[in-house]
C-alpha cells in the first residue's frame, strides 16, 4: 500500500468513526450538539476528501475544545486513539517534506504496535492475569459486561484462564506480524476480531471503529520499512 493510499484510507475510516461517534451526541445537551454536529459534517468532508488538510486541522481544534468541555476524554482509550490518529494525519498533511510526512504517519503505525504489545506486557507481569483471576474479576464486578447474564461467565474459570492467556499471548506476539505481509494481515484480522468481541461483550464500539482506522498506517509501514529490511 502506497503512502498516499494509506493516508486516504485512514482519512476515510477516521471520517466514518467520527461520524458514527458524533451522531450519538445529536440527542444530547444543546452545548454538546454544537460540538458534534459540526464534527459530523467535517467527518463527511473528510470521507469525501474535500480539503483534507484544512478539515483535519479543524477537527483537531474541535478535538481540543471537546477535551476542555469534558475535562478529558469522553471515552478514555478510544478518544485518545482518535486524537492520536488525527494528530498524526494533521502533521502528515501539513509537514513540509516527505521525510517529515512519513515520520508522522510512521509514528501512528509504531504506536499501534505498542497499543497491543504494552497492553499484553502489563497483563503478563500481573499474577492475577496469569492465573485468570483478573479476567474473572472483569466479568464478576467491573462495569464493563453489557448485561447481567454475561456476569455468569465469571463462574467458568477454565474458559477465562484460556481466554486470558489467548489475549496476553496475542498482544505480545502482535509485533511479529510485521515480519511478512501475510502474517500482518492475519494479525490485523485477529486484532479486529478481538475488538469486535470487546464491542459486543463490553459495549466498546468506539474502540472497534477507531482501531480499524489506524490499520492502513501499519500496512504501509510494513511495506515501506520492514519488507525493505528483510
Amino acid at each position: 500500500m502506497s503512502f498516499d493510499e494509506a493516508m486516504r484510507l485512514t482519512e476515510i475510516l477516521l471520517g466514518f468513526a467520527f461520524a458514527q461517534q458524533s451522531i450519538e451526541h445529536f440527542n444530547s445537551f444543546a452545548k454538546e450538539q454544537r460540538l458534534f454536529i459540526p464534527r459530523f459534517f467535517l467527518a463527511l468532508l473528510l470521507i469525501a476528501g474535500v480539503q483534507a488538510d484544512w478539515v483535519l486541522l479543524l477537527l483537531f481544534l474541535l478535538g481540543l475544545v471537546q477535551l476542555y468541555y469534558f475535562q478529558g476524554p469522553y471515552n478514555g482509550g478510544s478518544d485518545r486513539m482518535s486524537l492520536l490518529i488525527l494528530s498524526c494525519l494533521c502533521l502528515a498533511e501539513w509537514a513540509p517534506g516527505v521525510f517529515w510526512r512519513e515520520l508522522a504517519f510512521g509514528y501512528l503505525a509504531v504506536q499501534l504496535v505498542f497499543s497491543y504489545f504494552f497492553s499484553g506486557w502489563v497483563k503478563i507481569i500481573n499474577p492475577e492475569w496469569r492465573s485468570g483471576r483478573a479476567l474473572r474479576d472483569v466479568f464478576l464486578f467491573s462495569v464493563y459486561p453489557v448485561s447481567e447474564s454475561l456476569r455468569l461467565w465469571s463462574t467458568s474459570p477454565r474458559i477465562l484462564f484460556v481466554a486470558a492467556w489467548g489475549v496476553m499471548l496475542f498482544e505480545l506476539i502482535f509485533p511479529l506480524g510485521l515480519l511478512m505481509q501475510c502474517s500482518l494481515m492475519i494479525a490485523l484480522v485477529v486484532a479486529a476480531s478481538f475488538h469486535l468481541a470487546n464491542a459486543c461483550l463490553f459495549g466498546l464500539n468506539r474502540f472497534f471503529w477507531i482501531w480499524l482506522a489506524a490499520y492502513p498506517s501499519l500496512l504501509w509501514f510494513q511495506q515501506r520499512f520492514v519488507s525493505a529490511l528483510t
Binding site: Y74, V146, N205
Partner: peptide
C-alpha cells in the same frame, strides 16, 4: 439489562449512545 441478544450487541456497533454516556459517567 438482564440480557442482550447477539443481534442487539452487533447493532450497538453502530448506535450505542447510552452505553458510551454511561462509560463517560464511570470516568
Amino acid at each position: 439489562p438482564a440480557h442482550i441478544s447477539l443481534i442487539g450487541m452487533l447493532g450497538h456497533l453502530f448506535w450505542n449512545p447510552r452505553r458510551n454516556e454511561t462509560l463517560y459517567l464511570v470516568s
